[in-house]
Write a protein that binds this DNA or RNA. Structure first.
Length: 819
DNA sequence: TCCAACTCATTTTTT
DNA sequence: ATGAGTTGGA
């Protein structure tokens, strides 16, 4: 298409091929017959129904490699779509391993990234510029919030959150305000206001030269439909389209794929052929040169967990209807988990009635029992997880091979607290996003202000950050002036003297204008000239310095502001890193990457730590040992799901996804009480627990144990006593460093136990410990320091306690004293 | 315009 | 419990 011509030779630098042998023989090595079929089948449409752990990534990457090696496709003719950037990165890496350099020209990306690339090229076709901004959900919420206020829509029960989610749902169905209005009941004033909001929101986006996440897909579809000749460019280019996690595509994504796989020229009208002559084609499907791209989709309806955001399971269940003559390949053999884990997963998922029966199986044997545990509180539960992690570690499983899953992000807090205390290295995947921090958003808004001056939201965000004495009154004055003069908010700043504001504020505005202009000159050189790779990082620093942003933070006495400076430094480092990876990347590219890449995506970082994440984030990953925590009613299934059609079933699939991530060991745990909104509520075991066949599950401490024997006593008094009833009969499983809890919490009661984690963490300051020192620990008694590792606040003492054996303690906060 | 004290809602999942 | 948002006084 518009970029470099296709290379003439594919993978020219790969080793010589053996004559006679299938060029892809090595690609088929070790595959079962179904997998082979999935790699080698050639046709218009292929659906690979891939159960969890059935080697689908392997199949997909080999299929791509085989297309390339057989010279059936140039790399640039391949478009592979994944759901996350992480998955895209992994796939690229694995294809690279198979075909080397040839992997370069391929598009392996998420739906959103692919659409950004297309929109960048075509934005001018329909009233946007190349420099468009991408609004993440926070940005669009902020915009909607302003509009809700302006339209006084809360009077009609239209909160920003509700409005945002409705608009998003509609966009995923490819509706716009107009088409929605046609079907809506417009005699309802609330509906009228909503339509008005929707239209206003869209107008504002256009005016700001911005797309929200949903628009990236939806507007690309719109573009293809409105400009068939543009669509044809991409149809001609992408001859092989592969889509992973097809069960999680929504209607807009489905439509996008559909548009891309249509026959070339199928929208009629004149089309410029590659030879430059005009072609009118009535029925292009007969012409093999015009055939639509071949489509491969991979999915598993049992792992559909995004219906809540518009994923339509029918996209996969009706694939054969959509693509007549499609080939379907089933992959049921599982190469990941033990049979016990798979049997549990099969049993659970079989409770979903409207599914095609599918049973995962393996030939690696039964494996370990699944372990269950019931804690008194979420902290108790977390302690169990932390202890067990250490046991597994001693048994030779690397931290990086263990993961803890939970339903909601808020559950991570208790786990974190205990992990810190127990000195278990962990990494939270996803969670509170780096890029959602206020200071990061501010910094990015500065960059947006430079790269996309039409984006008034960004301007409004930074205009008084740091404080310049510019409040609502002044902002409105600027806005009015801009409107009168028919210029952008950004350009209005250049004429601060024309605004009727005080001299001090005038000066502040003029200064901001000058800083933005300077950064602009640095990052966006005028005439086609390329900015140096360092421009983004330098421009960012310039903005932060000269705007006074850094100074304001440094002058502050708020301790948090110190951390903010560090975060900004890290953002600058990210910009440098970006320049290294994308020497020609502009500030616009940088912003797009930042908007689309969540920090859950930097996968390699998890080395050496236990991974903590939500069940949703866990999809597509696998670990030797998996802890599914908080398996309680109202959590999984989540209470909100009860009201939604298909909700409980989706929750079950989510649980299923969690279970099937485990290779060797699976733990399910819950707590009897859980603190929520600062209140302690009693939790009930999840219905899904009963769906796991009893013979597969060993309770270390069952919900019954906790209820009938627990009373007001804590686990400390009656559990882990080794031979106690209902307790698997062995304290040994906890390893030699098992802490006899009776000693640890002599006067423990439930209240104390539940709140064992003090609100304020104690601080030993910089207590110096050296090997040989003797210490006393509040819970563990006396012991001797073997070694000290780590630095600063993270120094860890390895202590051999007289009574309870070796333990690792975080020196800064452990309840210890030097003797 | 800024800041402190106060109220209130938040907790489903993500590009 | 916590954070965001609002209100009223300086």
């Amino acid at each position: 298409m518009t970029d470099a011509p296709f290379p003439l030779i594919v993978g020219g630098d790969r080793g010589p091929q053996q004559a006679g042998a299938r060029p892809d023989e090595d690609l088929l090595a070790g595959l079962n017959p179904q997998q082979r079929e999935a790699v080698t089948y050639r046709g218009q449409a292929l659906l690979i129904v891939a159960g969890a752990g059935s080697g689908k990534t392997s199949v997909l990457t080999r299929r791509i490699a085989s297309l390339l090696r057989g010279r059936e496709a140039w790399p640039s003719q391949i478009l592979a779509i994944t759901f996350t950037n992480k998955a895209a990165g992994e796939m690229r890496e694995r294809v690279e391993q198979l075909v080397g350099e040839a992997a370069r020209g391929m598009w392996i990306s998420t739906f959103h990234s692919a659409c950004v690339r297309i929109l960048r090229r075509e934005a001018e076709q329909f009233g946007f510029t190349k420099a468009f901004t991408i609004y993440d959900s926070g940005d669009s919420r902020a915009l909607i919030k302003r509009l809700v206020k302006e339209h006084e829509a809360d009077a009609y029960g239209l909160t920003p959150a509700a409005t945002q989610s409705r608009i998003s749902k509609l966009k995923n169905e490819l509706s716009d305000a107009e088409s929605y209005a046609r079907s809506a009941n417009m005699s309802d004033p609330a509906e009228r206001v909503f339509v008005e909001l929707f239209a206003a929101y869209q107008r504002e986006l256009q005016r700001a030269n911005a797309f929200d996440f949903d628009d990236l897909i939806g507007q690309t579809v719109f573009l293809f439909r409105a400009f068939p000749h543009v669509a044809d460019v991409y149809r001609r280019r992408f001859r092989h389209i592969l889509v992973d996690e097809y069960q999680d595509t929504n209607h807009a994504q489905y439509a996008l794929i559909h548009e891309l796989t249509r026959p070339i020229g199928s929208d009629a009208g004149p089309i410029a052929s590659s030879g430059g002559m005009m072609i009118f084609d009535a029925d292009p499907t007969d012409d093999p040169d015009k055939a639509g791209a071949s489509l491969t989709v991979v999915g598993d309806s049992d792992q559909s967990i995004y219906a809540f955001r518009g994923a339509d399971i029918r996209n996969i269940s009706e694939f054969e209807r959509d693509y007549p003559g499609a080939k379907v390949v089933l992959l049921e053999q599982n190469y990941r988990s033990t049979q016990n884990i798979l049997s549990a997963a099969n049993a659970v998922i079989s409770n979903n009635f409207d599914r095609k029966d599918k049973k995962l199986w393996t030939d690696v044997g039964a494996g370990e029992q699944i372990v269950g545990f019931t804690g008194y509180s979420q902290h108790d539960e977390a302690q169990f997880v932390a202890d067990e992690v250490e046991v597994l570690r001693k048994a030779g499983i690397d931290y990086a091979q263990m993961a803890v899953f939970y339903r909601t992000n808020s559950q991570s807090r208790a786990l974190e607290e205990i992990f810190i205390r127990s000195a278990v290295p962990y990494k939270i995947m996803g969670g509170t996003k780096f890029y959602e921090r206020a200071e990061i958003k501010d910094a990015l808004a500065y960059l947006v202000a430079v790269s996309n001056p039409a984006d008034e939201m960004a301007m409004r965000r930074i205009i008084n950050r740091p404080r310049r004495g510019i409040g609502d009154v002044t902002i409105e004055a600027i806005s009015r002036y801009a409107q009168e003069e028919q210029i952008t908010f950004r350009d209005a700043l250049a004429n601060s003297s024309a605004l009727s504001v005080g001299p001090k504020i005038q000066a502040a505005i003029a200064h901001l204008d000058a800083v933005l202009a300077e950064a602009s000159a640095l990052m966006l050189p005028a005439s086609g000239e390329l900015a140096p790779p360092t421009a983004v990082a330098e421009g960012l620093q310039l903005l932060l310095n000269k705007s006074g942003y850094y100074d304001a933070l440094r002058a502050s006495k708020d301790a948090q502001d110190e951390a903010r400076i560090e975060n900004l430094d890290e953002l600058v480092a990210v910009a440098r890193e970006f320049a290294r990876n994308n020497p020609e990347g502009t500030v616009i590219d940088f912003l797009a990457e930042v908007a689309l890449v969540s920090d859950a995506d930097d996968l390699e970082d998890a080395s050496g730590s236990v991974s903590l994440m939500t069940l949703h984030t866990a999809k597509g990953l696998e670990y030797d040992a998996v802890f599914v925590t908080g398996v309680e009613e109202d959590l999984i299934p989540h209470r909100i799901s009860a009201g939604e059609p298909g909700g409980p079933q989706e929750e079950r699939r989510l649980f299923y996804v969690g279970i099937t991530r485990a290779r060797k060991r699976l733990y399910v745990s819950l707590a009897m009480t859980r603190a929520q909104f600062g209140e302690v509520t009693v939790a009930m075991p999840s219905r899904f627990l009963q769906e796991i066949p009893a013979e597969l599950l060993t309770w270390r401490q069952s919900p019954g144990d906790v209820n009938s024997r627990g009373g007001t006593q804590s686990r400390a008094l009656n559990a882990r006593r080794g031979s106690g009833s209902g307790y698997g009969g062995s304290g040994k499983r906890y390893g030699d460093d098992l802490v006899p809890l009776a000693k640890r919490e002599p006067s423990g009661n439930l209240e104390r136990f539940a709140n064992r984690i003090p609100a304020k963490v104690r601080d030993n300051g910089d207590m110096q410990l050296a090997p040989g020192d003797r210490i006393r620990h509040d819970d563990f008694g006396e012991g001797r320091v073997d070694a000290v590792t780590g630095e600063g606040a993270k120094r860890v003492a390895h202590v051999r306690f007289d009574k309870v054996g070796p333990k690792k303690l975080l020196i800064k906060i452990a309840p210890i004293e030097k003797l």
